[in-house]
Computed example of a mutant assay.
Amino acid sequence: MSMAGRMPEPYGQGSGANLADILERVLDKGIVIAGDIRINLLDIELLTIKLRLIVASVDKAKEMGIDWWEDDPALSSRARRNELSRENAELRERLARLESLEAAVADREREEEDRA
């Protein structure tokens, strides 16, 4: 008996196409995997971990209303720019308030010096 007869057959076109079909179907339809892990000691809940996993294409996720990655500055340069613009506007507003407060204090000090 030869070793070639015992070797498994290489993966053919059919199995690759099946995997591609399955992956396409999962991404098109989406799949949800959910589970909870709870750790109790003497009927006292110490830890609860809720796991939720959604596997879907970007288009399917958007269709379901899931688009958190678009607003996450760590994942989206547009979101990062928006966050920096918002922060910049807040800092400019705070600076303007501080400058107006400083001017009011300076005016009050001048008035007190004029009275003395």
Rank of each mutant, 00 (worst) to 15 (best):
E109N: 09
L98A: 12
A74W: 11
E112L: 15
R97F: 05
R92I: 11
L47I: 09
G30Q: 01
Q13A: 01
R52A: 04
K29M: 11
A56D: 03
I22M: 09
R25P: 01
S85V: 08
N88K: 10
L75A: 11
S76G: 07
E112V: 09
R115N: 08
D107S: 11
I37L: 10
K62Q: 12
T48F: 07
L47N: 03
A103E: 15
W68A: 04
N40C: 10
N18V: 02
L84A: 10
S100D: 14
I49Y: 11
I37S: 01
P10V: 02
A20C: 10
D114G: 06
P10Y: 01
Q13L: 12
W69R: 01
P10D: 04
M7F: 09
E87P: 03
D21M: 15
A103C: 09
A96I: 02
A104R: 05
I66T: 00
L46G: 02
T48P: 03
V32M: 03
D59K: 06
A61P: 06
E83A: 12
A104W: 09
S57P: 00
D59S: 05
D114E: 15
D43H: 00
V32C: 02
L95Q: 13
R6T: 03
D59F: 01
A20Q: 08
I33A: 08
S76N: 12
I22C: 09
L91P: 06
E102D: 11
R38K: 13
E113Q: 14
R78G: 08
G5W: 08
E87L: 08
L101W: 10
L51F: 02
N82R: 12
E87Y: 07
R92H: 05
E9W: 07
S85E: 14
R25L: 13
D36T: 14
A89F: 09
